[in-house]
Design a protein around this nucleic acid. Structure first.
Lengths: 210, 210, 210, 210
DNA sequence: AATGAATGAGCATTCATTCAT
DNA sequence: AATGAATGAATGCTCATTCAT
C-alpha cells in the first residue's frame, strides 16, 4: 500500500539491523563471560543474564554454546589481525613491519587481560573441538608475520631462514610471555617487549662483528 | 639422603607395593585417556575401563579426577625434566647445555604425540584450576634453561639479555612448534629443530660481521 | 439447508475469503506434517515451513497447536463420514448399507496411508487430552454403522445382537487391520476386505445348515 | 583368602539379586506412572520419586526413558500372554482355546484399567518410535489366537478363513471395546464379553438353519 | 583394596506461545 | 494478516563422587 520511497532501503549494507545489534550485544557479553570464567564454567544462563536476554533469545541467534564461543573468537581474531596489519603498514622496511605486527599483538594482549585470556587459553577447555580453531587463528597471525619476513628475506634484511618456523617462533614467544604474565602477573608485556624483540631479532649470540 | 640398603617388609617405601603398582597402572591409563580425549571429555569411567578397575577403585587411590590429572602431569613433567637435565649434563659449554635441554624436550615431545598433547594443550581444559599447574610445569622447564643461560652470560658466551624472558621465549617457541605439528602434522619437530635452534640462538639479522 | 445463490460481498460466509484459504492451506500442511511425524514430533515450525508462513501467521489462524491438530482430525473425519454415508446410501438393504459404510472406510484408509496414520494412531500422541477426541471420532463412525445395523435387526436381516458392540467390533477390526498394514505393509486393506467382511458378517462357525 | 564354600553361588539363576529387585521396583513404579499420565507427561523425576530412588539411580538400570517404557510394555505383555496361554490350555477344543485366550485378555484388561491404558493407548504418545513395539506386542497376542484358530480349521470346527486376519479382527475388537470402556466407562468388558464372543464366532447373519 | 549401586547437583537445548511492529 | 524476535518453562541425561559391603 505504501509505495513511497524510503530513505533507508531494506537490507542496505550500510544499515545495522536490530537483529545484528542484538547479535553483537550477545557476542560482547559472551566475550566477557567466557574471558572471566572459561568455556565450561560459563553457563548460557550467565551470558543471557549479562546481555539481559532470555536463554532462548541467545539460541535464536546462535545454534549452540560452542558456535557462540567460536564466533567470539573469530571476532577477536579479526580485530587483532586488522590492528596488526595496520601497525605493519605504518612501517617502511619489511623487518620493521614484521616486528610492528608482532609488537602490536603483544601490546594489545598485554593491555587487555580478557582478550588475552580468551585467545590464549580459555578455548582449550572445550576439548578437542577447539584445537582446529586455535590452529586456524594462530595460523592467521603467523601468516601476517611470515609475509613480512619473506619480504625481509628478499630485501636481504634478514637471513634466509624458514620464515614459517620463524613466524611461529615469534608467536610462540608471545603466547608464552602473555600466559606467564596472565598467571604470574609479571613481567608486563609492554616491559618485556624490548627484550623480546631483541632476542627474537638478534638471537642470543654475542655479536663478534668488527 | 638415606642410601643404606633396607631389608624391610612389604609396605616399605623402597619396595614397590601392590598398592603402588595399581596406582601406577591407573596413572598410565589416565595418561592415555586424558591425552586422547582431553580432561573434560575423559570420564572417570573411561579410565576405570582402561585400567580394568572399578570407578571406586580409582577413588581409593586418588581423591578426585583433578588430583589424578595433576598426578599424571607431574609424572610426565618429572620425566621430561630429568631427561632435559641429563641431556644438558652431557654438554660442556653453558649455551650448549641450554640448547641441549631445549632440543631434548622438543625431540621427546616430537616423538610422543600423546605426551605432547597432554603437556601442551589438554591441561588447559580444566579451566582456571589448571592454570597454576601449567605455570608451575613450564616454570620448571624454564628454570632448567634459564640456569644454563645465566651461566652462558657469565661465561660471555651470549649477550647479557633477560634470561628469564629468553627461557620463556624458547619454551614458547617449542610449544608453538609442537602444537602446530600436532594439529597440522608438519613440520616434524625433529626436522624443525635446526631452524629453530638457529633462529633462537642467532636471531634473524644478517650477520654483517667482519 | 440454504441453497439459494448469494451475491454477497467478500467476507460472506459462502464466499471463500483469503483468510479461509490460508486457513485451509495451513490445515493441509498440518495434516501432512502430523501424519508423517506424529503430534509431538511435529513442530509448529515444521508446519509453518510447509505452508510457507511464519509461526506467528499460524497462530493468527489457530489458537494453539492442539486446536490445529483437532481441526485437522475433524476435517478428515468429516470427509470420511460423508463418504461412508454416501456409500451406504447407494445400497438397498440395511446390512448392505452397514457393510458398505465399513468397507468404504477401510478402502479409503487403505488408499491413503497418511490419512490412516493420522486417524488411527497419531492422535494418541497427545496424551490424555486427545482421548475424548478419539472417542468422539470413532463414535461418529460407529454411529453410522450402528444405525444401519439397527435397521438390519428390525428388518430381520441379522440377529438381535448388541449393535453398539457390533459396530465397535467392526471398527476395531478395521483399526487393527489398517494399523497392521501400516506397519507390516501387509495385507493390503483392499485384499483383506473380503475376508474381513466374511468374518464379521458370518462369523467363523461352520454353517451346518440344511 | 576365604575359600570356604558358600551356600549361595554368585550369579545363581535361582537367586534374585538386589540389582534385579531394584530393577523390578523401577519397572513397577514406571508402569504406574506411565499408566496414569502417559509417556510424555511422565517425568523421569516422577518415576524416581515413586520408586524412592534418585534419577541417576534409574539411569543406572535403564539407559533411557524410552527403554524403560519398552521394558514396562514387555513385562506386561509377557504376563498377559502367559495368562492367555494358560487359559487356552484349560480348554479342550481348538476353538474354545482361541476363545478362552481372547476372553482372558479382554477380562484381564477389563479388570485393570492401568494395564489396559498402558498397553492400548499410552505408547502412542511416543511418536513413531512406539509403532514397531505396538505391532510386536499385538503380533504376539495374535499369534496365540491364530495358532488355535488354525487348529480349529484343521479340526473342521470353523470355516477355512484367513486365520491371521481373523486373529487381528478379534484383537481389534478387544482393543476397541477396551478403549471405549476406558474413555466412556461403558460397557464393562466383562459384560460385553458374551456379545463380543457371539458376534465374533457366529457373525451377525441370522442362522437360517434348523 | 575393590566393587558397583546409588546420589544429586548441574545444564544445554527445545519449542509452544506472545507481541510489538 | 503476517512477521520474527524474544520468552521462559520444561526436562532428559551426565558424571564426579560416595559408601555400604
Amino acid at each position: 500500500m505504501d509505495n513511497r520511497p524510503t530513505r533507508q532501503s531494506v537490507g542496505d549494507h550500510l544499515t545495522t539491523t536490530q537483529k545484528e545489534k542484538t547479535r553483537d550485544r550477545i557476542l560482547g557479553a559472551a566475550e566477557q563471560v567466557f574471558a572471566s570464567k572459561g568455556y565450561h564454567e560459563s553457563l548460557v544462563d550467565d551470558i543471557a543474564e549479562e546481555v539481559s536476554l532470555s536463554k532462548g533469545g541467545i539460541y535464536f541467534h546462535f545454534p549452540s554454546k560452542e558456535d557462540l564461543f567460536f564466533a567470539v573468537l573469530d571476532r577477536l581474531a579479526d580485530r587483532l589481525v586488522v590492528k596488526a596489519e595496520e601497525a605493519a603498514a605504518r612501517e617502511t622496511s619489511p623487518l620493521a613491519r614484521a616486528e610492528a605486527a608482532l609488537m602490536e599483538v603483544l601490546l594489545r594482549l598485554g593491555k587487555r587481560r580478557r582478550l588475552a585470556r580468551i585467545l590464549m587459553v580459555q578455548g582449550y577447555s572445550m576439548g578437542n573441538a577447539f584445537e582446529a580453531k586455535r590452529v586456524e587463528i594462530f595460523g592467521r597471525f603467523a601468516e601476517v608475520i611470515k609475509a613480512n619476513l619473506d619480504e625481509a628475506v628478499l630485501a636481504g634484511e634478514i637471513r634466509d631462514v624458514d620464515t614459517a618456523i620463524a613466524a611461529h617462533v615469534w608467536l610462540g614467544a608471545i603466547n608464552e610471555i602473555v600466559i606467564r604474565w596472565l598467571y604470574e602477573g609479571t613481567p608486563q608485556p609492554a616491559s618485556a617487549a624490548d627484550s623480546l624483540r631483541s632476542i627474537l631479532v638478534h638471537g642470543l649470540i654475542v655479536e663478534d662483528s668488527f
